[in-house]
Simulated assay, not measured.
Amino acid sequence: MIRDRAQRIHDVQERLGREMDLWVASAGGDGVPYLVPLSFFWDGQDVWLVTRLSNPTGRNLAATPHTRLALGDTRDVVLLDGEVTAYTHDEVPDAAADGFRVKTGWDAREAGPAYRWFRVRPVEVQAWHEEPELAGRRVMAGGEWADG
């Protein structure tokens, strides 16, 4: 059964609240792509990530204002393109850090200044179950959820 747009939006938001990890795609100035799994927290508007600034993904997210995040496998896909803002452990909003701690069991603020927090604000989201749902897969554009 092909889901309508409203059901896809509901499913995406539910998965963002439930799932623990997602794939983070980034690239450095040299164009070398990186794809890594990271734990995340969805606050209902933004995705929050935390990783070391010394690794390629941390450096890329700090230097580039865009990333692509992915949930799911090849039969139940969510692709989220977003704008990235970096925060030190002293700057991250308490609600985001506390939400991340509750969800993952790890208080990354205690890991020290080598880590950076990244807020990813969704700009475009696509969701589909296999080929029959490719039509209508864009459920967010311009940072706004699409109408049903």
Rank of each mutant, 00 (worst) to 15 (best):
D76M: 06
S39A: 15
G72Y: 04
G72A: 05
R59F: 00
V47P: 06
G28E: 01
E83K: 05
L61A: 09
V77C: 09
T74S: 12
F41G: 12
V92Q: 03
Q45D: 15
S54C: 03
A70T: 03
V92G: 06
R75A: 07
T67D: 04
D81I: 03
G28D: 01
N55C: 09
F40K: 04
R59W: 00
W42F: 08
P56D: 15
E83V: 02
G82P: 15
A25E: 01
A86C: 11
F40M: 10
V47Q: 08
G29M: 04
R68N: 13
E83C: 03
T51Y: 07
S54W: 00
R68T: 10
T57C: 03
T88W: 05
L38R: 11
H89S: 13
T74K: 12
D43L: 07
V84M: 02
L80C: 13
E83W: 03
N60H: 09
A70H: 12
L35A: 11
D73A: 11
T57Q: 02
A62L: 02
N60G: 06
V92S: 03
P33Q: 02
D76G: 06
L80F: 00
V50S: 15
T51R: 13
W48K: 07
T51G: 15
S39Y: 10
S26G: 05
A25G: 09
G28Y: 13
V77Y: 12
Q45M: 15
P37R: 06
N60Q: 05
V36N: 12
D46L: 07
P37G: 06
A25P: 00
V50E: 14
H66D: 05
L53F: 01
F41L: 10
T64H: 08
Q45V: 13
L61E: 05
T74A: 13
G29A: 11
L79T: 11
G29W: 00
L80Y: 02
D90W: 01
N55H: 02
A70R: 12
T64S: 11
V77T: 01
S26I: 02
T57S: 09
H66P: 03
L79M: 12
R59S: 03
W42C: 13
P37S: 05
G72M: 06
L71T: 04
G28C: 12
L71I: 04
N55P: 07
F41K: 07
L71H: 10
R75M: 00
G31S: 08
W48Q: 14
Y87H: 14
D73N: 11
A63S: 14
T88H: 09
D46W: 08
S54Y: 00
G58T: 01
F40P: 11
D73V: 07
G58E: 01
D81A: 12
D73F: 03
V47A: 05
A86L: 03
T88N: 06
T85Y: 05
Q45A: 15
P65D: 15
G58C: 01
T57Y: 00
D73S: 10
L61R: 06
